[in-house]
Structure formats: structure tokens, C-alpha cells
């Protein structure tokens, strides 16, 4: 799915109803027979109106999907790696798109480089049940990107860059809080 064709949604161009809907559901919806009835009641709307609103927010890209978010760890996905890549800027968007399509990738972004300290412009987070599994995923991404990985010569600069990819595994969660719409 391409988001390029969609209008750019910000907090400022939400309708009052959409804003209210987000505030009511951002901590989740009740798991009951008729969850949208509960929302309708609180918003003073009919169920039909809430269903229409939900679908329109999906079409506008405000809601990505209505889904269950599992705890990676409890499902046995104990390992995650932040893979980082130094790829040609010219081809970065096309290849970034392809990396995002891989089922084991949870986040995929282009970010700025800060040479010479940081030469990686593509970030892709991978998840797996073993260290071997995430190492193999890194290999799959490398295969996909092999044509556009940048080779930087060891020039005279003090911090010469010799690698064009890496994987940073997390060894501890130091803080984790959710992102919320403020009233």
C-alpha cells in the first residue's frame, strides 16, 4: 500500500468526531459482542454512524487496521535486531519499500546519515525466536540490497568507515511507554 497518494493527516486536520473517536479508543476497544455499540453510546451516535466513521478513518489512513497486538516475547519472539544499511540514496525508496514487505520486519525507515560517525540511512527492525533466525533475516535483507550497498573507501579521515551494514540487538529495555493523543 502506498501512502503517497493519501492526504497528509495531522492532529490539526482531524474532525471533531475523529478526535473524539481516537480519545475513546486509543487504549483499546472492549472485547464484547457489539464493541461498536459501546463506542456509539459514548459518542452519542448510531452504530451505523460509528461503523461509517471507522471505515472512513481507515480510508484516510488515520486507522491502519483494527487488530490484536501481541507481546512479541510471550509468543516466543525473544530476539530483535535493528538492522542498519548504507545504501545508494538514488535507489533507497524503491528498495526500502521492498524491505518493508518482508513479514519479519516491524519498522522500516530512511533516516539521515551523520558522517563520519554514522553512515547508515536505512533502518529495518527484525524479530525472531532465536539469534540464528534474526541473523538469517539480516542475510535475506542483505541479499535484497546487495546491488546498492555503498562502498566507502578508507580515506585519510580519522574515523574511516569500513562497514556498510550492521545489526544492533537489544540487550535490555530501559524504558517503554506508549504514544497517546493528548486532550
Amino acid at each position: 500500500m502506498s501512502t503517497d497518494t493519501k492526504e497528509h493527516i495531522t492532529k490539526e486536520n482531524l474532525t471533531e468526531q475523529e478526535r473524539q473517536y481516537i480519545l475513546l479508543t486509543q487504549n483499546g476497544i472492549p472485547i464484547i459482542e457489539k464493541p461498536y455499540h459501546a463506542i456509539a453510546e459514548q459518542m452519542n451516535l448510531s452504530v451505523e454512524q460509528v461503523l461509517t466513521l471507522t471505515k472512513s478513518m481507515q480510508e484516510r489512513g488515520i486507522i491502519r487496521r483494527i487488530a490484536a497486538v501481541p507481546n512479541h516475547y510471550k509468543l516466543g519472539y525473544q530476539f530483535n535486531g535493528m538492522t542498519v544499511w548504507d545504501i545508494d540514496d538514488e535507489h533507497a525508496e524503491k528498495f526500502g519499500d521492498a524491505v518493508g514487505q518482508l513479514p519479519f520486519v516491524s519498522h522500516c525507515y530512511l533516516r539521515p546519515r551523520f558522517l563520519p560517525e554514522w553512515n547508515y540511512n536505512l533502518f529495518a527492525m527484525v524479530h525472531g525466536k532465536t539469534q540464528e533466525e534474526i541473523t538469517q533475516y539480516r542475510g535475506q535483507i542483505k541479499e535484497l540490497l546487495k546491488e546498492i550497498l555503498v562502498t566507502r573507501n578508507n580515506d585519510s579521515s580519522q574515523n574511516s568507515i569500513t562497514k556498510n551494514n550492521d545489526m544492533l540487538t537489544s540487550t535490555a529495555i530501559l524504558k517503554k511507554t506508549g504514544l497517546r493523543l493528548k486532550k
Partner: peptide, 14 residues
């Protein structure tokens, strides 16, 4: 399950 419900685009949350 850590969450059950709509997944919002972060930008639309402001």
C-alpha cells in the same frame, strides 16, 4: 495481547 483495537497512524495523534 498488549493491545486490542484501532492502530492509529502516529502523525494523526499529533
Amino acid at each position: 495481547l498488549t493491545r486490542f483495537g484501532p492502530m492509529f497512524d502516529a502523525a494523526s495523534l499529533g
